[in-house]
Computed example of a mutant assay.
Amino acid sequence: MGRPKEHGAQTRAALLTAAAELLHAEGPGAVSVRRVAAAVGTSTRAVYSLFDDKDGLLRALSIEVAETMRRHHEAVPASDDPIAEIVELALAYRAAALEKPKLYDLFFGTVRPGASQADPLFALVYRSFERVLSVVRRAIAEGVFPGRAELEVGLNLFALVHGLASLELRGVLGGEAEKIWRQSVTATLTGLRQALG
């Protein structure tokens, strides 16, 4: 008979929650294997067994955010109107950021340009971005963004939603956050629809 796992899914989830709380309250420097284990009432061995080390723990938190992003983006239904679909994708990004507010900054500190496509974290991030690019690609083919390149439009939208999410999570947008998101995304899309030159 195989030996039962000493540290299972419940312990893993508890350790991730404790690490997220420490990260949110005190920053990445406060997250240590010892403190996270103590917060859960388990041994440091549990952390090492499940995540290898502190970096593995932080990476697992980043993967959680990336998976949340993927889930929200891929839940947006296809539409005959690419502009309306892009607006819904932007709001999906917002929903994902709001679902994991304590981890959002960590996530962007972990994601690096030029990451290997074999990296599971990169693969999840790219799936969310590819969901947006697929609509942009279709819109360009339909003449919606005249003279624009797919990646240019995608990066414009990415910069916009990242900025909006960062501001909202810091309380800057106040009670009008969703309205500001819709206005900002719509205005950006209106600009991108104008012919260059």
Rank of each mutant, 00 (worst) to 15 (best):
V144P: 00
A39P: 07
V132C: 11
L173F: 07
G8F: 06
S184Y: 02
E21T: 15
L196K: 14
E67T: 14
V76L: 03
T17V: 11
E150Y: 09
P120V: 00
E178A: 08
R148M: 00
D119V: 03
A149F: 07
Q183W: 11
D55R: 09
A149Q: 14
D80I: 07
V161F: 14
A92M: 03
L98E: 01
L91K: 10
L173H: 09
L91F: 13
G27H: 14
I86P: 01
A96V: 01
F158R: 12
P77W: 02
E64G: 15
W181M: 10
E67S: 14
R12F: 01
R12Q: 07
F108N: 10
R34E: 05
G27I: 07
A195I: 05
A37H: 06
A187W: 03
R45Q: 10
V125L: 10
L192S: 12
I180N: 07
I140W: 05
D81P: 00
S134W: 00
V185D: 02
G154P: 08
E85V: 02
F108Q: 10
L89H: 06
I140A: 04
V47D: 06
D53N: 15
T44N: 09
A92K: 01
P28N: 11
P4Q: 07
G174Q: 01
V144I: 04
R12T: 02
G174S: 00
G147A: 05
I180F: 14
A165H: 01
E88I: 06
E26Y: 13
G8T: 15
R137Y: 05
R59G: 05
P28L: 13
A118Y: 12
T17H: 15
A78L: 06
V33C: 08
E150M: 12
T11K: 04
R138H: 03
A159V: 11
E130T: 11
E142L: 15
V65C: 09
A19R: 07
L121N: 02
L173W: 12
S134H: 05
L91M: 13
V31S: 13
A149R: 15
G154A: 08
P146M: 09
E142S: 13
R112L: 15
A37G: 01
Y104A: 08
R148I: 00
D53W: 06
D52A: 15
I63Q: 11
A66N: 03
L61F: 04
S134M: 05
G2I: 11
T110S: 13
P28H: 12
Y48S: 08
A95H: 08
R45K: 13
L192E: 05
L23P: 09
A37L: 02
E67C: 10
